[in-house]
Design a protein around this nucleic acid. Structure first.
Lengths: 246, 246
DNA sequence: AGTCCCGCTTGATCTAGGTCAAAGTTTGGT
DNA sequence: ACCAAACTTTGACCTAGATCAAGCGGGACT
């Protein structure tokens, strides 16, 4: 979000500097966090947690991408969240995981054992406060996604997904209000379908259609160029510009 | 959730006893909350807030029902939340409302002006903590709903909605593990459609179908009897029993 | 008692997206 | 360089749910 606020943080060696949980913390709180953290890496495709498992840690994604999914017994699955670097995983105060978490690329997490983290949360109001804010953001995102799932057409769904990924990417490499964007799709067609409540065939067709209509340009299957973000937002049926245009 | 824990609360006159924000607070914190609260009532159909409006209060629903909705310019609308008594409205730390909030029945809210509430939150960690928990619950509900919207059939969607309403009702009048339930639908067919990402015609048809198949019994248009909750959960495609059966 | 209005139901038809099937394409392993 | 497995595209067809269009209560006014 606001890259500048990170600068004053003195937590030295964590690659993401606990941005997720500590954007506003004082440096000694960060140092305290440092004393209870550890790193853990996962390979692409590897499950991190299964729904219902006891989860004895919380943490932030340092690098790589993971998905949160829910599954019905007959195998229908719906992605309910996408974890990008700096996103937080875990539910302070809860024992079980509510969803499957799977690494879709090689992934590194910065973890805290749950108990010490909760103790620290009890001592440092900033952290609880920051966590509340992050959870509210996630809630907003989930609800925005409900509109996508419930009311948008397949083409609008694809455009919405591309817009979200572009937006996330933009916030990682901010350089003013550029109107065009290039990024790599971090998801297979199937994963996109699971995110959008579609089949992978429909995803493929709609991606092709957007390409044919010049809304996006593809190099290979994964590298996407969006010549005009405004046009893409329009295709997404989204009035809000998502913060792209000042 | 856990009705027993409410008993020790001494906040005297608030009909919902601030259960929403204070299930675990000490009594003097509740009294402090009492000093900054006020009540406000709305008529059925009346908007409470529009998306984007500045929102200078937070609060809990005391009685009645409200809906959270998001709308696209062309009028397509998706309900993203349902507020029942004891549910909390508002986003500490945020200025604007993110959705439309509309009273669907006559409704009373117990409100706190935002600034004093936030001050109090900063002073009493319990409240921030409780709010985080509630937000996590809402996030879980939203994500469960994403599965419903993205992957369930119309019939399963209806069954899921009925199950959710029944569950909420059951928690208000707890009397052991009853297997059958009676409740009033608080929503019109159109509101149900907006919740489920369907049209009102499809809702009507599927309700009729469930009735024909004996999954539910209707008295009039609104009063619903579910002879067998297990059967309903099954129709919802939901493996978890939702806490009905011990 | 009548009638107007709003919410609901039911029927007939249409279509977006799902399903099934068959090739293409990339990737990585040997 | 070759091959297998995984991913993707494209085509032909089908179905769940949308859309369009009548009616049907039932309660709130006069």
């Amino acid at each position: 979000m606001n890259a500048p606020t990170i600068a004053h943080i003195s937590c030295a060696d964590c690659p993401i500097r606990h941005r997720a949980v500590c954007a506003r913390c004082e440096s000694d709180e960060l140092e305290a966090l440092d004393t209870i953290k550890y790193y853990r890496s996962y390979e692409a495709g590897q499950p991190i947690i299964w729904s219902g498992d006891v989860m004895n840690f919380v943490g932030s994604v340092v690098s790589g991408i993971a998905t949160l999914t829910q599954t019905m017994e007959d195998g229908r699955t719906q992605m309910v969240g996408l974890l990008l670097p700096s996103d937080f995983v875990g539910r302070p105060g809860r024992d079980g995981a509510a969803y499957n978490v799977v690494a879709t690329t090689d992934l590194v997490m910065c973890c805290f054992r749950k108990k010490p983290f909760e103790d620290m949360m009890a001592r440092t109001p900033h952290i609880a406060h920051r966590l509340l804010e992050m959870t509210l953001d996630e809630l907003d995102a989930a609800r925005e996604w409900m509109l996508v799932l419930g009311r948008k057409t397949a083409r609008e769904k694809i455009a919405s997904l591309l817009a979200i990924i572009a937006r996330r990417d933009a916030s990682l490499t901010p350089e003013g209000a550029v109107n065009s964007m290039v990024f790599d799709l971090p998801l297979t067609r199937e994963a996109m379908a699971d995110y959008l409540g579609l089949t992978l065939e429909t995803v493929s067709r709609q991606v092709s259609a957007l390409k044919k209509d010049g809304v996006i340009v593809l190099e290979g299957k994964r590298r996407v160029t969006v010549p005009d973000m405004g046009r893409l937002m329009e295709e997404a049926g989204d009035d809000s510009d998502g913060g792209f245009l000042a």
